[in-house]
């Protein structure tokens, strides 16, 4: 009983929803501030993302005529819950060694649920532009999932004995040095970062949202608290994905002594790479995005996999 309660608290407070939301929103501020500095602007104050979410909670929720109410309102919640679960699993594996067989596969599944939630929600809204956004998001998911999974499994191949447990991968790295020291895993890491860009729907792969042509596409019909849920799960993804990469490729999170500093540095480096890619690239068309992921990126991922198999 006590352990069930503990797990529920883990999910709701630390390291689940609440903690992830707070750090995710702070990260989103870093993102907006860095973007502003790149464009020679001053940028928003640090509490800006919090003010946005609070404001949205106080506004009216509009449900469009002809929309499927249940799908429209519950799909984003499913996405939010999924990110919370992923974050809980990653942190527990990192700080308590609490993994289970195949939790890596669970994480990979759960990481697609926010995108699926957005597809269902946008399709249920009954808005033509939102459904164009949903169809683009669907194509984007199909495009990036293949190289993403190959990249993650490159790391799995590299670990001996092969394991699908997150804490197994962490233990291997603790003994044999971080996986990022190998040529194959560097390639896999690059591929994973590119896929993260698409998972977050950040430029150059923001085709489903496309402010200027689709007017926020998949988010278009959301307002008030429902939009807050959507924005919050985006912010939490921005926090969870770098933590996932640190766990898989970069030795995991250490919360003792100098480890705290190293963990923060690793995290900031990954976030900065993502933000800089976001700010220096224009949006591609959806067909270009699919071709990019199925072409060069998949080939790169396979090269990484082959290198890992021959032991590099």
């Amino acid at each position: 009983m006590a352990s069930t309660l503990g797990l529920v608290l883990n999910f709701l407070i630390f390291p689940g929803l609440l903690f992830t939301a707070i750090v995710g929103l702070l990260t989103q501020w870093v993102d907006r501030k860095v973007s502003a500095r790149v464009q020679w602007r001053v940028g928003p104050p640090w509490y800006q993302p919090f003010a946005d979410i609070l404001k949205l909670l106080g506004k009216e929720i509009l449900i469009p005529e002809g929309a499927g109410r249940t799908g429209f309102l519950f799909a984003p919640l499913a996405g939010l819950a999924a990110v919370g679960v992923v974050s809980t699993m990653l942190w527990l594996a990192n700080i308590q060694g609490g993994g289970f067989v195949g939790d890596l596969i669970g994480v990979l599944y759960l990481l697609t649920i926010p995108s699926l939630g957005m597809i269902i929600g946008a399709a249920a809204s009954g808005n033509p532009l939102a459904s164009v956004g949903a169809s683009r998001e669907m194509k984007l998911v199909l495009a990036y999932e293949l190289p993403f999974i190959i990249a993650i499994f490159t790391a799995v191949t590299k670990v001996s004995p092969m394991t699908l447990r997150l804490d197994g991968i962490l233990d291997y790295q603790a003994v044999n040095g971080v996986l990022l020291g190998n040529a194959s895993c560097i390639i896999a890491f690059i591929v994973a970062i590119l896929c993260a860009q698409a998972k977050l729907t950040y430029p150059p792969f923001d085709v489903p949202e496309a402010d200027t042509e689709l007017m926020d596409g998949t988010h278009m019909e959301y307002s008030g608290a429902a939009l807050a849920v959507v924005k919050l799960s985006q912010a939490m993804m921005l926090f969870t994905l770098p933590i996932f990469f640190i766990t898989i490729f970069w030795g995991g999170i250490v919360l003792t002594g100098w480890g705290i500093l190293y963990t923060i540095i690793k995290y900031v480096i990954i976030v900065t790479i993502i933000v800089l890619i976001k700010n220096t690239n224009p949006r591609v068309r959806i067909d270009q995005a699919v071709r990019f992921f199925w072409g060069p990126v998949t080939v790169l991922a396979i090269i990484g996999m082959v290198l890992a198999m021959v032991g590099l």
């Binding site: 001053v42 940028g43 928003p44 959301y222 939009l227």
Partner: peptide
């Protein structure tokens, strides 16, 4: 634009009226 940068006050232009304040 950088010269005036209204994002300092937390404002931004949104594309959908459902997001507007």
């Amino acid at each position: 634009t950088p010269r005036f940068d209204i994002e300092r006050f937390g404002m931004k232009l949104v594309g959908s009226v459902k997001h507007a304040d």
